[in-house]
Amino acid sequence: MESLAVADVCIEWGVLGKYTGDFDWAQASYERALAISERVDGSISHRVATVCHNLGGLAHARGDFALGEPWARRAVTVRTALMGPAEPVVAADRAAWAALLEGCGRLDEAEAVLRQAMAVFQKCYGPEHYEVAVTLHNLAALRHRRGDIEAAVQGYTLALNLKARLLGPEHPDCAITLINLATAHREKGNNAEAAAQYTRAIATLAARVAPDHPTLRLARERLNALGGEEPPLGRKGAL
């Protein structure tokens, strides 16, 4: 009989497969880890919750939100049974579930789940924490998808400012919020501000990621569509 040590190795293989793009290998590794964990630990364990969380994340990476949503929901259910609803790790499971609910078009459910996660993050970590910044970004993205562009701009701006304080204004994680903020400004008809934010995203990423990085490529494509001029390499975007 395979041991929990084998399950843990399979989880690591799954993580590696996801981040190298070998999704089929990742799926098989996670499924093997889940089978071992359920056989040894039963259906309610942190290891089972982690594998379910990861299976949901893998489906999100594939763009198969309907496949991933039940896995993410199960992760929340299992972890809540073990710890109660008020722990940050449960909130992280909820945030991952919300992303899949949004992908499924279930926006009201996604917002409710995200707000539950935000309440836990703020209570446990305070307002100046990375998880709070990420959740602010995700709530802004929900407003954006609903067409509430002004609220989206406000939310992205709050998220960006918090990320900049926590990580530094040139951290690559700021770039995706800059791109979303720029897109919201473009949809408002404010092309000059949109171009400025795309330019900042490019300046943030250009010296830090590969030239074909998808986020950098996206920022360049959108800036070019506006007729903007890319900043010279090495020029920094200031927040």
Rank of each mutant, 00 (worst) to 15 (best):
E193M: 11
R73P: 00
S3Q: 07
R62S: 00
A86L: 08
A72V: 02
I11G: 07
A81Q: 15
L34E: 02
P88W: 02
V6Y: 05
A182V: 11
L205W: 00
Q116R: 11
G155Y: 00
K123P: 04
N191K: 11
A192E: 13
A7F: 09
E87F: 10
N138K: 05
L100W: 04
Q154F: 10
I11Y: 07
S37M: 08
P214Q: 06
R39P: 05
E31Y: 07
E150M: 12
A81I: 08
L218T: 12
Y130M: 14
P172I: 08
E31K: 14
Q27R: 15
L139A: 04
A81V: 08
L136M: 09
D41S: 12
E87A: 11
R186C: 11
G155S: 04
Y130E: 13
R106Q: 03
R186P: 04
L4W: 02
E31D: 13
Y30Q: 02
A98G: 02
E69L: 10
E193V: 13
E102T: 11
L178D: 04
I36E: 00
A33V: 03
S45H: 15
T77A: 15
H137N: 14
E193C: 05
R145L: 06
S43G: 11
A152G: 14
A238K: 14
E131C: 13
G227F: 02
N191Y: 13
K163M: 11
E229H: 09
L216H: 01
I176T: 06
A61I: 06
A35T: 15
Q154N: 12
F23Y: 10
K188A: 13
A140H: 07
M118A: 07
T177G: 05
R73S: 14
R146Q: 12
C104G: 03
A207G: 13
R222Y: 03
A91W: 04
A66L: 09
I179G: 07
R79P: 00
G21W: 00
L114K: 04
G63D: 01
R74K: 15
A151G: 09
L205N: 01
D148H: 14
H129C: 08
N224G: 06
G189C: 03
T157A: 12
A195F: 09
